[in-house]
Simulated scan of single mutants.
Amino acid sequence: MRLRPLAALSAAAVSALLLAGCASGEAAPSPSGTAAANLCDAAAASGSASDSVKVSGDVGEAAEATFDTPIAPEDLEVTVLDEGDGEAVEAGEFISYAMTAYNGETGEPLATVGYEPGELLPSQLAADTIQGQVFGCGHVGKRVVAAFPATESAGSEVYVLDLLGTVPTAASGDAQEPVAGMPTVKLADDGAPSITIPEGDAPTETEIATLKQGDGYEIKKGDYALIQYTGVRWSNGETFDSTWDGGAPIAYPTTNYVAGFQKALEGQKVGSQVLVVIPPAEGYGEGTINEEDLKGETIVFVVDILGGQAAATGTE
C-alpha cells in the first residue's frame, strides 16, 4: 500500500515554484553532532545578495520584496529577517511554511504559496533538506529571505519564506462516537492505532466512519493528502502495512489509491481520523488469499489526515 515517501512529494511540490530547480546540487553537508546542532549548522549563511533584498509585510502574510537586478549569488544565501517568537522547532518535526518567489534576473514575482489552506503540504524539517538550509533551527514565526544561484536548468531566484508552525504526526481533530458494528480502534500514546475486528461477516460494501473530526482543508479528488495509516485484514486482524512502522507519513494523490481508500480520503478535512472497511470489489479484487496477496480480502484501515495540497498546486 505504501506508495511514496514524503520527501519525494515535497520535492515535486516545491519544484512547481522552481525552488527545487534553483537548489539542485546545493544540498547542505551532513555535519556531525546532535540532530539539533545539525539543523543549526545546516542553515545557509547570509551574503551580499540576500542582505540586499528589502522586504515589507508581516510574518504570516504574503511579502513584497525589492532588489537590484540581476541578483546573482554564487551559492545559496539566507538572511534572517525575523527570528520568530513561537515554539522552537526541532529536526524531524513537520512544519507548515509559506513563501513568495521572485525571478532574480528581472525582479518579477513568480508565485505566492502556502498562506492559504491546501497550497503546500507540511514538510519534515531536516538538515539535508532545502527547508533545513533556509530555516535552520529557530522558532515558529521565523522569516528569512533566500537568494538561490542560477543553475543549468533555472535562473537565479529570490524567496521570502515564513515558518508558520509545526504539524502533529497524528490526527488532532475532535473525537467522535464509535459506530456500532464496525472495528474498534485503540490508540497508543503516539497515536498509532490498533484495530480489533468484530465478530460476524465482513460487510459487502465500503463502510466509513470518522473517528476524529478535523477542521482543516477539505481533501478533494486528486489532491495530495499527507497521511498516517494502518491496514489490517478482516479475516484474521493481522496488520499488513503501516506507516507507523515505517517511521514517517506518506503523501500521494487520492486517485492513486484503491477505490475504497480514495472514498475514505475525499471529503474529509485535515486533522480527521477515518476508519474504513473495504471489501474486495473496492480493494484489490477477488482471488486467492495468501501471505502476500490481498486479493479476496476485506481490508480495514485507520487513516490520520495530516495535510492536504490541491491537485493544481503540485506536479509530478
Score class of each variant (00 low, 15 high):
residue 69 T to Y: 00
residue 70 P to H: 10
residue 70 P to E: 12
residue 71 I to V: 14
residue 71 I to D: 06
residue 72 A to Y: 01
residue 72 A to G: 09
residue 72 A to D: 15
residue 73 P to H: 02
residue 73 P to I: 03
residue 73 P to G: 09
residue 74 E to T: 15
residue 74 E to G: 14
residue 75 D to C: 12
residue 75 D to G: 12
residue 76 L to W: 07
residue 76 L to F: 08
residue 76 L to H: 03
residue 78 V to S: 04
residue 78 V to H: 06
residue 78 V to D: 09
residue 78 V to F: 06
residue 79 T to D: 05
residue 79 T to V: 04
residue 79 T to P: 06
residue 79 T to H: 09
residue 79 T to K: 13
residue 80 V to S: 11
residue 81 L to K: 07
residue 81 L to H: 12
residue 81 L to S: 07
residue 82 D to S: 14
residue 83 E to W: 10
residue 83 E to R: 08
residue 83 E to L: 09
residue 84 G to R: 03
residue 84 G to D: 06
residue 85 D to R: 12
residue 86 G to V: 07
residue 86 G to P: 06
residue 88 A to W: 04
residue 88 A to C: 01
residue 89 V to F: 02
residue 90 E to Y: 11
residue 90 E to M: 07
residue 91 A to Q: 14
residue 92 G to R: 11
residue 92 G to M: 06
residue 92 G to K: 13
residue 93 E to W: 01
residue 94 F to T: 10
residue 95 I to K: 09
residue 95 I to F: 11
residue 95 I to D: 13
residue 95 I to T: 06
residue 96 S to V: 05
residue 96 S to K: 14
residue 96 S to E: 14
residue 97 Y to E: 07
residue 97 Y to T: 07
residue 97 Y to G: 02
residue 98 A to L: 05
residue 98 A to D: 09
residue 98 A to K: 06
residue 99 M to I: 11
residue 100 T to M: 09
residue 100 T to N: 11
residue 100 T to Y: 10
residue 101 A to I: 05
residue 101 A to T: 08
residue 101 A to Y: 05
residue 101 A to K: 04
residue 102 Y to N: 00
residue 102 Y to R: 01
residue 102 Y to W: 12
residue 103 N to Q: 07
residue 103 N to L: 01
residue 103 N to I: 00
residue 104 G to L: 00
residue 105 E to M: 02
residue 106 T to Q: 02
residue 106 T to E: 02
residue 106 T to G: 01
residue 106 T to P: 00
residue 107 G to Q: 03
residue 108 E to G: 14
residue 108 E to H: 10
residue 108 E to N: 12
residue 108 E to M: 13
residue 109 P to I: 10
residue 109 P to D: 13
residue 110 L to E: 09
residue 112 T to R: 10
residue 114 G to T: 09
residue 114 G to D: 12
residue 114 G to E: 13
residue 115 Y to G: 05
residue 116 E to Y: 01
residue 116 E to K: 10
residue 118 G to K: 00
residue 118 G to D: 02
residue 118 G to L: 01
residue 118 G to V: 01
residue 119 E to I: 03
residue 119 E to P: 09
residue 119 E to M: 04
residue 119 E to G: 08
residue 121 L to R: 10
residue 121 L to Y: 08
